[in-house]
Design a protein around this nucleic acid. Structure first.
Lengths: 113, 113
DNA sequence: TCCAATAGTTTCTTGAAGGTTGCTACAGCA
DNA sequence: TGCTGTAGCAACCTTCAAGAAACTATTGGA
């Protein structure tokens, strides 16, 4: 079994820190961003994130599945098809993603301006 | 010169990713959280974050200063006093922090319930 | 005279994160 | 007959982040 960074049994008292235990990783945020509009299969996800290796994407998806952020659906076809989708918990992070997107837009204007 | 994780010259096209280049690090988020209510000196910050070494806190603060998120004010006293405070840019991240805090609160209730 | 206190820096070491390559299963198709 | 494509796993290696511990400057005060 490889390392799976799942949430600790005892959550931090600070809610901001609690959130960080689930989405304190860059890749996790990008997966959430790309699955927000609907399910994607593994290779689509890898392409849309860009610059992530197969191994790391697999690791992150496994951890996210263990944390209840995504579901993994395997279709018994050849070649195999595996789809990842956000759970309700995963979708519930939308406000955080939206705040990050909005801030990023403002920052880019600020820098460009 | 040690590694300073400053924002790259060319920002990612995705605004979410842009935000991650500035606050994609757990420690940075915790510093923002603790300076939100006002300036703190180095040792206060280290205590309030908890579990961060002197070296790492120094590194993070230097990077945040280079990125324009915090200011560093040295008072010519003995023993020395150094205060860190959020810049306007640092304060502008409040909505992101708030979204994280709110989500963390909901998540804790969800887990506890 | 020497200690305390602050905010570091420096060096050494460990652990985690990530990259690369090779391997697998198996139906369909040329 | 052998090639293609998907979604991995395993092993190996490199790089980077982080931790620990020792060291520094300064000077008022015991």
């Amino acid at each position: 079994m490889t390392h799976q960074r799942t949430v600790p049994a005892e959550l931090p008292s600070c809610p901001v820190e609690t959130t960080l235990t689930l989405i304190g990783n860059k890749w996790v945020v990008l997966v959430l961003r790309d699955l927000a509009d609907g399910a994607l299969r593994f290779s689509q996800l890898q392409r849309s994130i860009g610059g992530i290796s197969q191994k790391v994407l697999t690791q992150q998806l496994r951890a996210m599945e263990a944390n209840g952020l995504v579901t993994r659906t395997v279709y018994a076809e050849v070649p195999p098809r595996v789809e990842y989708a956000l759970t309700e918990l995963g979708h519930s992070l939308k406000p955080v993603l939206d705040a990050m997107r909005e801030w990023g837009e403002g920052y880019k204007k600020h820098v460009a301006g």
